[in-house]
């Protein structure tokens, strides 16, 4: 299991899975504390139309164009949600529901109507991800990690998600104080000079970038599990935000590794000869972790009274 076949077939998918999970879990911590968990839901659904539009405009599946298209779609979605909320005085959940379903429907329709069948872009792949296919062809074993030629042939998704994960860590470190402050007490944060509106918007855009980068690996719906499950389980483990973030990274990593291994090798233990969806299994494992935390974690229940609606 640890030999050259592992490096060639499993190392890169596991790394990509772990990095995707971490990149999503980091902003997910704040989405949960801000009661915006479902923004993750909305964003991940509009990644598909964004990618389709980017493809129709550029005619290529260049990853940069896709990334920009999806991030653009996320920004459009956020603006549309805000507009519907404010202009129509509609509650946020419903505004999100209107926005992401409509954009998703538009994306599917565009996809079905255009000649994208030749390229590697189809709805099911977009929904379910394709972690297993992100293998490292050129690898001959662990020594390939030091072989420039082999390294040049790493699946491009790996460096991309690595950069994005690093970016998430950096953003979180740099903006830690204003982010925490505006999440806890937005009114006060504004009076000490934190641009709270911008902070909230930037958080959503960061989440969108993470969702786009993770999308190839785990698909647009399982990304939601990465946004929510590890941070939600982490919230039940501690009462300090710093430690919650660390737990969420641990849970994200655990979900990705265990999920991939169970999907790849689990069925063999049961005598089946085919692996099952790794992305789906990662979501299932993250759900199992959350379930365990919900019944056994040390800080499961609320301390303070819920915030006033007004």
């Amino acid at each position: 299991m640890m030999g050259s076949a592992f490096v060639q077939l499993s190392l890169t998918p596991i790394l990509i899975g772990v990095l995707s999970a971490i990149a999503c879990a980091l902003p997910g911590n704040f989405l949960i504390l801000r009661r915006q968990a479902l923004i993750g839901d909305a964003i991940s659904h509009v990644v598909l139309p964004g990618i389709v539009v980017a493809f129709l405009i550029t005619g290529a599946t260049a990853s940069m164009a896709m990334l920009l298209g999806a991030a653009g779609a996320a920004v459009v979605a956020v603006l549309l949600i805000e507009a519907i909320k404010r202009l129509g005085r509609i509650e946020p959940g419903a505004a999100m529901g209107v926005t992401f379903t409509s954009m998703f429907a538009g994306g599917v329709l565009l996809l079905e109507q255009s000649d994208t069948s030749t390229v590697h872009l189809d709805v099911e792949h977009a929904l379910m991800g394709n972690l297993e296919s992100l293998i490292w062809f050129r690898a001959r074993g662990w020594e390939s990690l030091f072989d420039p030629v082999a390294l040049a042939h790493l699946p491009p998704e790996l460096p991309r998600i690595a950069v994005v994960a690093l970016l998430m860590v950096l953003l979180m470190v740099v903006f830690w104080r204003p982010l925490k402050l505006s999440t806890f007490d937005e009114g006060f944060a504004g009076t000490v000079g934190v641009p709270t509106g911008l902070m909230g918007f930037a958080l959503v855009v960061a989440a969108a970038v993470a969702a786009v980068a993770a999308f190839d690996a785990v698909g647009s719906i399982i990304v939601i599990a990465m946004f929510i499950c590890p941070p939600a389980a982490a919230r039940l483990m501690t009462n300090r935000l710093e430690i919650q973030i660390l737990w969420s990274v641990v849970f994200a990593t655990l979900s990705a590794v265990l999920g991939y291994v169970l999907a790849g090798y689990g069925p063999l233990w049961f005598g089946a000869d085919h692996a099952v969806s790794a992305a789906g299994m990662i979501a299932a494992v993250s759900g199992a972790i959350l379930a365990l935390a919900s019944v056994a974690a040390p800080h499961r229940t609320r301390l303070g009274a819920p915030k006033d609606a007004g």
Partner: peptide
């Protein structure tokens, strides 16, 4: 106006005043 279930300590809230 805030959610007191937020995961943080008393001293951290006071330090917010030094932002």
């Amino acid at each position: 106006s805030v959610d007191w279930d937020f995961p943080t300590r008393v001293i951290d809230v006071v330090l917010m005043g030094l932002y």
